[in-house]
């Protein structure tokens, strides 16, 4: 749920990067963080284990000023992918305004994609969020690797709602901004309705 303060003229929106472990969620928001102008970003937070895997969440605040006198703030979150962190994933979805589902294109990770998507659908149901209505974008990441599934297969199995989707190589920044811009656009559009 976006939060609008008409006194300070601020709009805050929450965008969650969801997907199986190691699909590239942290890489996406880290890339965004590293390439955004300093005046447009706050502090990035990473709650990671020693093995560099996200333990609870990563967080990046991004500010866009002077949109018709308003300041728009996007709060980007990533979820931990491992199955044992189901509870944390659910907590992070609370109040979500838009979701980027980051899939791992590798063939042997496809079951993990499917399981995580099921888990996301369940969690959204628990919050009474209709997946048909919430801003949602799919990203098929790791397109640089040799053992990847064709995009058509990923699209058919994951993107059942015909949402915008993008191929990506996140650590090179390919597809990262396109994905972020699309989800931001959808979230902002929803503000008007």
């Amino acid at each position: 749920m976006p939060f609008i303060n008409f006194a300070t003229k601020e709009i805050n929106c929450k965008i969650v990067y969801y997907g199986p472990g190691l699909s590239g969620k942290t890489t996406n928001i880290k890339w965004i963080y590293d390439h955004i102008r300093p005046e447009n970003k706050g502090e990035m937070i990473t709650l990671a284990t020693e093995t560099e895997r996200t333990l609870f969440f990563d967080f990046v605040p991004i500010e866009v000023s002077n949109v018709k006198g308003f300041k728009v703030r996007f709060h980007l979150y990533t979820t931990p992918g491992q199955i044992i962190y189901r509870a944390s994933r659910k907590l992070i979805l609370k109040g979500v305004d838009g979701i980027v589902f980051v899939a791992d294109s590798q063939e042997d990770r496809h079951d993990a994609n499917l399981d995580t998507l099921d888990d996301m659908i369940e969690n959204l149901k628990d919050y009474d969020i209709n997946i048909e209505e919430i801003p949602l974008v799919f990203q098929y990441n790791k397109r640089d690797l040799p053992n990847v599934l064709p995009v058509e297969v990923l699209r058919r199995d994951l993107n059942r709602w015909n949402r915008p989707d993008f191929e990506a190589v996140a650590h090179k920044g390919i597809g990262v901004l396109e994905t972020f811009k699309e989800i931001s656009r959808q979230v902002l559009k929803k503000l008007k309705s």
Partner: peptide
């Protein structure tokens, strides 16, 4: 509520 924001106004 409408914040009267146009997505097209924002040059990301």
């Amino acid at each position: 509520v409408s914040a009267d924001i146009n997505p097209e106004d924002i040059d990301l």
